[in-house]
Write a protein that binds this DNA or RNA. Structure first.
Lengths: 281, 281
DNA sequence: GGTAAGGGCTCCAGCAACTGGAGGGTCAAG
DNA sequence: CTTGACCCTCCAGTTGCTGGAGCCCTTACC
């Protein structure tokens, strides 16, 4: 009984696998045509090959590698451990899914921040305002030295507080006047709950009446905005309290340093209650 | 003001990228060392390179391709369309997640069936039993011809009924005696609800008292089991009804043909109610 | 002066699973 | 005899590296 043989082209149409792929599978010993003409090298396939091809297609569809498929096909007679293969594959896929899901989550965060910043950008003006600040729970690391160091410190804070962080990064500035090299400052992160971390000072900073403005531009020009706040205070006979606060509404992002001309920083300085009991305007 | 330069080894330790990778990135114009010695080819990196490397690392961590990273880095000054990149990437990742989730689901199904069959295998005997069958909603395609055709028919049924399928494949056999070539049979699938599909006959098949046994082995040997049922019926003076039913407990799987010696097929034949009103034993 | 260690360099190969193309042989019909 | 449809092999390219061979250079040590 002679069975019908099919050329690689016919077999390709029957199996749904491209000719190139069939040749490749032959090369890899995965799907060996039942007969190869010696002189021309022409491949000929039969129906058993068709069955094999369908198995291979199915397993490829389940994302098995060719190597694995080979092993599965070899160990087929005993048939017992196919379940292991399936379970292993499932686990592998699930861990890949998880990895990607994590990335998507991270992306979501970044996207949220970015479009947030975009919106801020549109609606910001640089007028001085007076407003009430609520008390705020923060964790901070006070430091004396150059402002250059704050990147490291924010890094440390971020790692220490992680998922407890509940707002934009900020800084408390304890200096009376601006110092470049020997400044006294405290990078802070708002947090939701009290957490104990080594090196991190966690406590509530007070609320109250403050004067504030949103500074636009690189940090080097912050002193101009401080100047404006000072003269405003003098003009309105307000007594200011240290430390002043800088809220980094938009600064260097998690990925890009961004354009410093577009950085937004809110400066807040608490106003001392008037000793006469007159409420601050 | 001369800035410090770092050799590729030092820079590798600072950036956390392997030396090989740094050379590769240089080759790809992704991270170009600020200075390359002309005669030795030695690469030298500066702190700006370090920043770039961190951006690249971050983007790689978000699964961006090098090509994309290049484009992002190039279009950085305007800075506007970064959000598009992020959204695109997120969408891409999500579709990958979905694909894998689909595969996992399919794997689950296969695993369930397989371990199901495994369990059946252990606990099966081939004794004849009498039992009550509930009525069952099925969709079937009646056919006259060779049993060879049933693979195609089951395929058609599967595609037509898809997710409505609610149990093992089965077949109704209308022939009085076994025929090889001109058989009259109907591949069926149990379903949950009435659905209308062209070419598929959907209806409820009756329940009632039946005799049944589980046949183990290839379909070619089914007639032996039919024989046993017949002589049992004669012995117990039971009148049998057509069509008989074959339930394919374990047959060729979705991927593998499996070992026919291990196929399990339950044969059920309804028993006509005794005309005397005596309940069947 | 030899040599070993520790950097650096280039170029080549390989992973996975194909895909595309060049260049050439085979077969049947018109 | 040509045309067109097939078929073949071999090579290159995809992505993001990784490993190795083979070579150069400097420094330290014996």
């Amino acid at each position: 009984m002679s069975e019908t043989l099919y050329s690689i082209g016919e077999f390709s149409r029957m199996s749904g696998l491209p000719v190139k792929t069939l040749r490749f599978y032959h090369d890899k010993q995965l799907l060996i045509p039942c007969y190869v003409e010696f002189d021309t090298g022409y491949r000929h396939y039969n129906l058993r090959n068709l069955e094999q091809s369908q198995v291979i297609k199915a397993l490829r569809g389940l994302d098995f590698g060719l190597e694995q498929i080979s092993r599965i096909l070899e160990g087929q007679p005993d048939d017992g451990d196919i379940l292991d293969f399936l379970e292993t594959q499932k686990a592998a896929l699930q861990s890949e899914i998880e990895r990607r899901a994590d990335i998507v989550q991270a992306l979501d965060l970044i996207i949220a921040r970015e479009s947030d910043a975009r919106k801020l950008m549109q609606t910001n003006d640089d007028r001085i305002v007076q407003k009430q600040l609520p008390p705020q729970l923060v964790g901070g690391i006070r430091h004396r030295g150059s402002y250059q160091d704050c990147a490291t410190l924010f890094g440390k804070l971020g790692r220490a507080l992680g998922r407890h962080i509940a707002g934009k990064a900020m800084m408390l500035c304890y200096d009376e006047e601006f110092r470049e090299d020997d400044a006294d400052f405290e990078p802070c992160m708002p947090i939701k709950r009290v957490v104990k971390k080594p090196q991190v000072h966690v406590r509530e900073i007070p609320g109250g009446s403050c004067i504030a403005l949103v500074h636009r531009g690189p940090y080097e020009t912050l002193s101009r905005s401080y100047g404006r706040l000072m003269s405003y205070a003098k003009e309105h006979e307000l007594v200011l309290q240290r430390p002043s606060r800088e809220i980094y509404l938009k600064g260097p992002g998690m990925i890009f340093r961004g354009n410093p001309e577009k950085y937004l920083t809110e400066i807040q300085i608490l106003v001392a209650e008037d000793p006469n009991g007159r409420p601050p305007i």
